[in-house]
Design a binder for these strands. Structure first.
Lengths: 169, 169
DNA sequence: CTAATTGTTCAATTCAATATGAACAAAGCA
DNA sequence: TGCTTTGTTCATATTGAATTGAACAATTAG
């Protein structure tokens, strides 16, 4: 069945192209690779779940890109495997998670928290280094700055749950 | 006066290196160039304002990088020219803005809002395209998705002032 | 005027993140 | 077993953003 009888043209129609472009822009702001935006965008605007091969064919991306992109999207909780198909089908199909809440949650969990935590660690090490400075005047200045950094981290940590709450509506 | 009599060694000490590293990581998360993190980081941990040449010398970056980096940091409101020096001095010195509020405000204004706005524009165009679809079933589906996108934009727009408020403490 | 200092601009280069695609696994089937 | 389909991995290629550095203002001084 190499040629689907009817559906799935191999080129994006104008609407699909526009939607994909929106998501490509979107993920670039978030610092994610272009292919992530392409894949999610196409899934988002297609009524039926798509397989890896569908994505490769319609987006003109490599199997490698599609595979890695789907993996990341799964880890972000942004796509899930469509389970509603016949048991005889061994190809897996994907559909998008369209609740902003879920998307934001996944992004925070996978992309923000890890950075915040490594930041905290580094700042703790910094504090130790600052304490070891001889000159009291200088030490005071440095401690103040490090303390400020620590404060920034705390604020950032606090803001995340609030963000999730607001965007989960 | 090519060789400062005493201050400004040409290599970063370990503490400075650590601080710069923290900011280099930080700005990467925000999608800003490495040099921005280096420059701001060094300004952040130095007691006295630094000139462009100080930055070039101590960070081993090009004049071009330093000039462009300072320009962006100024546009973000993250550094300002130190005004407290003698009128006879024509070189300009820079100091960091250390209030999180100001940094977040500048980032949102310069980096987030423009993207949100161009996003809105594109989604409006999308809505028009979706309305032109023939098949009622399909048009309904597409309208639903576009409506959802629009909702996401609205939520994002709403969250920014709240973010600023929380981080301005 | 020339020379020196300070800073900007931008074409060319560098470099790191992303995409590719061939080789490889895994699973189904004859 | 061997053949096919589906998907993953990873070394290499590509590409686009950041950096460089030389040329170019602009300003001051002699």
């Amino acid at each position: 069945m190499h040629f689907p009888p009817d559906g799935s043209p191999h080129e994006l129609d104008p609407l699909e192209r526009q939607v994909v472009a929106v998501f490509v822009d979107g993920v670039r702001v978030l610092g994610l690779p272009r292919s992530i935006g392409e894949i999610y965008g196409l899934l988002f605007i297609c009524r039926t779940p798509l397989s890896l091969d569908d994505l490769v064919l319609r987006l003109n991306i490599s199997k490698g890109s599609a595979s890695q992109g789907l993996r990341m999207l799964k880890s972000l909780g942004a796509v899930r495997e469509a389970n509603g198909n016949s048991g005889a089908e061994r190809r897996t199909y994907y559909e998008p998670a369209v609740e902003l809440k879920r998307l934001v949650g996944g992004f925070i969990r996978e992309q923000i928290r890890p950075h915040l935590e490594s930041g905290r660690t580094k700042i703790n090490r910094l504090a130790a280094t600052a304490c070891a400075i001889e000159d009291p005047e200088h030490r005071k200045f440095l401690s103040d700055r490090v303390e400020r950094l620590d404060q920034w981290m705390r604020s950032s940590g606090k803001v995340l749950p609030i963000l999730q709450k607001i965007l989960g509506q």
